[in-house]
Design a protein around this nucleic acid. Sequence first.
DNA 1: ACGCTCACG
DNA 2: GACGTACGTGAGCGTA
Length: 933
Amino acid sequence: MTTQFGKSCHLHLIDGSAFIFRAYHALPPLTRKSDGLPVGAVSGFVNMLQRYVEGNTGPDAATHVAVIFDKGSHTFRNDLYDQYKANREAMPEDLRPQIPLTRDATRAFNIACEEIEGFEADDIIATLAHQARDAGGRVTILSSDKDLMQLVGGGVEMLDPMKNKRIDTDGVHEKFGVGPERVVDVQALAGDSVDNVPGAPGIGIKTAALLINEYGSLEELLDRAEEIKQPKRRQTLIDNRDQIELSKQLVQLDCDMELPFDLDSLEIKDADPETLMGFLAEMEFRTVTKRIADKLGIEAPVIADVAPTPIETSAAEAVPFDQATYSKVADAATLEDWIGRIRERGYVAVDTETTGLNEMTADLVGICLCVEAGDACYIPLTHKASASDDLFGSDELAQGQMGLDEALALLKPVLEDPSVLKIGQNMKYDAKIFARVGIDIAAMDDTMLMSYAMNAGLHNHGMDGLSERYLNHKPIEIKSLLGTGKSAITFDRVPIEDAVKYAAEDADITLRLWQLFKPQLHEKCVTTVYETLERPLVPVLAQMERTGVKVDRDTLSRMSNAFSQKMAGLEAELYELAGREFNVQSPAQVGTILFDEMALEGGKKTKTGQWSTPADVLEDLATEHDFPARILDYRQLAKLKSTYTDALQTHINVETGRVHTSYSIAGANTGRLASNDPNLQNIPVRTEEGRRIREAFVAEPGKTLVSLDYSQIELRILAHIAGIDTLKQAFKDGHDIHAMTASEMFDVPLDEMTPDIRRQAKAINFGVIYGISGFGLARNLRIPRAEAQGFIDRYFERFPGIRTYMDDTVAFAKEHGYVETLFGRKINTPEINAKGPHAGFAKRAAINAPIQGTAADVIRRAMIRMPAAIAGQPAKMLLQVHDELIFEVAEDGVDQLIETAREVMEGASDPAVRLDVKLAVDAGQGANWAEAH
DNA sequence: ACGCTCACG
DNA sequence: GACGTACGTGAGCGTA
């Protein structure tokens, strides 16, 4: 039941951003006890809302209310003037994750919460104020922002909530020296250094008001500027007319927005106590929860009092490692006791022990838990009886273990409870193992990913290394339990007593690393990266990997046979050409034949003193001789057969009939994923023969493979970061970017472009991304080095922004020791100040990392959003190949999937980063990957 | 275990 | 002035 907004109604419009910043600065940096999430501003915000709700009584009480927020940083004003708000300082790192929580808080209070992409909160406020005023109602804007003063009058007032001071028409006069209707004129002249509105140089509010009052309006003033007596002031207004008019456009609020809601929907509603309490409890606000509960006359929910996360780095080291303190859990009562302690604490480090490294085939052997440094246990579950009296190993279970099902049934509720944080090292592995026994881990932190967010480029992020580096403790080596090579045993054959020490230690180390890393995330300003680009990817990848992709064994098998035959023929031919038999696959032997026996020119040796025979050298020789040409043919076939048609077959899972790769999240320093076991990111495509291997990657009957890939994403990002207008425009117009580059560089009109000139420009475009050098380009294009250098010089001349980008990036790296992506991912560059040949590598890597890394961030964001976006559609995301996502879709769902996935991918940078260049996504489909790509 | 070569973006 | 160079990966093979 809603009343029509009208005469007797009173609308309150709350400036949400102002509330947030006030709350942020007014409160100390509180963190949520259980996991260290910064919540100080949320707490202040909640208090302000509560005080507002409590105070909204009496004759001035609102009947309708909304909290209005800014959304995104790019608005129509940036399109008018790209420097608008350019001086704004970046949002503090610990405030960023709190922004969405303030929306949640508003909704929890059952107060309307509005934001619209591309507009500032002020525009929404302006539009609503006008609508309410026109409907005959009364409006109070709760804000002290002077930009909103233009709205005052005709029943619209402002209220500064801190000073509790009302601002009416007189108040505006006091501030601006003119009435509300002329405020924008004054602002247009005076400008605003905070928002970077230029205004007229040398004119402030006082002078502006004087002029406006004299001439009546800004337009009148500008038209009659010649009449101004003071010569300097006159000249300023004449010279800066455009800038002043632009300024007016910038400060003028949009009162005429199309809103997707109406005034009636803002009517005040009581909060739903359960929702509100739920939110407050989730935030772990004890005091305010109790206060509001008392007010509502209800019982306050119990908030588990978990121990605060130790902040002192010494805490992790204070307790010495002692394997004797680890205990074995072998009965339900003891396990229940542990679970009680976990619930009490609110977090637990978890590690699984299994029979292997492949999560799809390895079986769960035991689970370890740790709640406090030095306090860890191991729950053996499926250890086999001692192998010592049975040469082949017994299949009987060892004594002294509780039942697998019983243990899992007890653990499942706490592992799936989102209010209990599960801490792991490489949680994707454990999550997949648990998923296979029906447990869906909820709420987790990952020490490997924390290290990656902070230390990419400095070192690897494996547990043993992290332990030695940060805890000064060398863990028990798994080798000492399992042995190596052929005689290695699986973990289920390890005696339980030994397993307890090893396994519990892993959980202990993980917990201590977490205690150390958690507060460091904020100190190193990578909380947002960890929270938005690392952690949420874990469940997404786990699902993709478990789904796998169907690979047709017969297709591969047939190809293998065909390759074998061709190779046999080539082998005979090669023996003939060489005059003797030799190992065709040995570069050393091939080198001897080419450069010693055949005495060809151009051979180089590797650092180990062997002849070097890479493809490009052989290609040069192949123009004159058959032997190197046949070697190249042979090598291509051998590669395809051994790495692809043969090896892929061994990766087909017997249960699923599919291939399940595993993605390393923390492998590549730039933020890219890496695929392994098997690597599905390097399936051939560049040659026709290799491309056919993709025919073996198929959709299930009735389904279709769909591939969507970003078009030229790295060049688009380069154009944005380096601010290259010509490139930006070319992308906007949908031009062939390499042809355009060629045209610019070589002064060839586009309609006279030859493939060869375009090819050269393409090589230069890519070279730029890699940190171009004359040498590298010369080798790639096989042209003299001087000529290559000439191209590069020319390129920099035509696109000077790129030179600046490269120089600035290297300078930044030298100063800070890292470079950054647009999303704040930091890539450390410890070698950047090194002397000698290392320096060149480090420089080029530093130039490349922000570009490659930003592209990696973009597709990560798309992948993280994808499951929710395609929920309900008959589609599954299967693979990622750096700029490409592959889906398996029911045939009648293909069009919808493409539409949805494209939207997610093209909008992946929003709203965190507004790219000057739109992202474009190409789509393909087919029964197999060759057709879909 | 390491180097060489080559598959991908 | 010389030196050594495109960026980021993973895997299979030969050689030690």
